[in-house]
């Protein structure tokens, strides 16, 4: 094993195939030595890119709209477009009652959107590719939705699991399945987002590794371009999907009967 490791290490000298698809996801302290321990307050590259996402949000939605113009500038128009998009989504899916939670959903959407898109810049770090981040987002949604469901509906919220339409003898079985699927929600919710981003970014890196072989490097560059285009699409769609699933879960909490 050990000798093989050495052989492998020697094989990774420049010229050969080098795959480090996960280096881009490493959390490194921004200041100080590379190997420094990362404690909870350390300013890392994750911190930097999250701050950049927050800054972009502020630039677009606060600085961009400072004119308050009735006839909007381009930036204000974009801000209004995003506002209208999310507002309509929340209103369509959850109804009027859900609009109270619109700022939270907007926060989620904008954070994910900007993290995804900033992560597509070369050499960037993508906070939403980390399961820790998406799990916190998804768990936050899960807990908030559950709490809202119980506060708004009391024990009637449990009616979400008890299908009145199903035959009586099937209802317990369906209830068990429903409960399991309810608790799986945050898992799939978070892994879907992180997985999509990890897969895309790792894929680009793998193809970049193939570019070391001169014969297939043009092909690999074309493939990187194509996957990059796909990733631009995925970055937007995943932010949208995360948000609309949040809205759907919220709708379940507000109207558990159907």
């Amino acid at each position: 094993m050990a000798t093989e490791t050495v052989a492998l290490v020697e094989g990774e000298e420049p010229g050969g195939l080098v795959f480090h698809p996960f280096d881009q996801f490493e959390i490194k302290p921004l200041f100080g030595e590379i190997g420094d321990p990362v404690s909870w307050y350390t300013i890392t590259n994750a911190t930097f890119w999250m701050a950049l996402a927050a800054l972009s949000v502020i630039l677009l939605l606060v600085v961009g709209t400072r004119g308050r113009a009735v006839i909007p500038s381009r930036v204000q128009s974009a801000a209004e477009l995003i506002y209208g998009f999310v507002y309509k989504m929340v209103e369509d899916v959850t109804g009027k009652e859900g609009l109270k939670y619109f700022p939270w959903i907007m926060t989620l959407f904008l954070f994910i959107l900007f993290s995804n898109y900033l992560g597509l810049l070369p050499l960037a770090f993508t906070p939403t590719s980390h399961i820790a981040v998406t799990a916190v987002l998804a768990l936050g949604v899960f807990i908030a939705v559950t709490v809202i469901g119980f506060v708004k509906n009391g024990m009637a919220f449990l009616g979400l699991f008890w299908m009145k339409e199903a035959p009586l003898f099937l209802r317990p079985v369906i209830a068990i399945i429903e409960v399991i699927s309810y608790f799986v929600r945050p898992v799939s919710h978070s892994i879907r987002l992180a997985g999509n981003l990890v897969a895309g970014h790792a894929m680009i890196k793998v193809f970049a590794g193939f570019a070391a072989i001169a014969a297939i490097s043009p092909l690999s560059i074309v493939a990187i371009t194509a996957i990059y285009g796909l990733e631009v699409l995925v970055a937007g769609i995943q932010a949208y999907v995360f948000t609309i699933l949040t809205c759907i879960y919220l709708k379940d909490a507000l109207h558990p009967s159907h």
């Binding site: 799939s188 879907r192 997985g195 990890v198 769609i237 999907v241 609309i244 699933l245």
Partner: peptide, 19 residues
């Protein structure tokens, strides 16, 4: 909207196996 949700669900399972 339903289309994108459906796509996301179908794609997520593929992403899981890729993961």
């Amino acid at each position: 909207a339903t289309l994108f949700i459906g796509l996301a669900f179908a794609e997520a399972l593929g992403i899981f196996s890729f993961l």
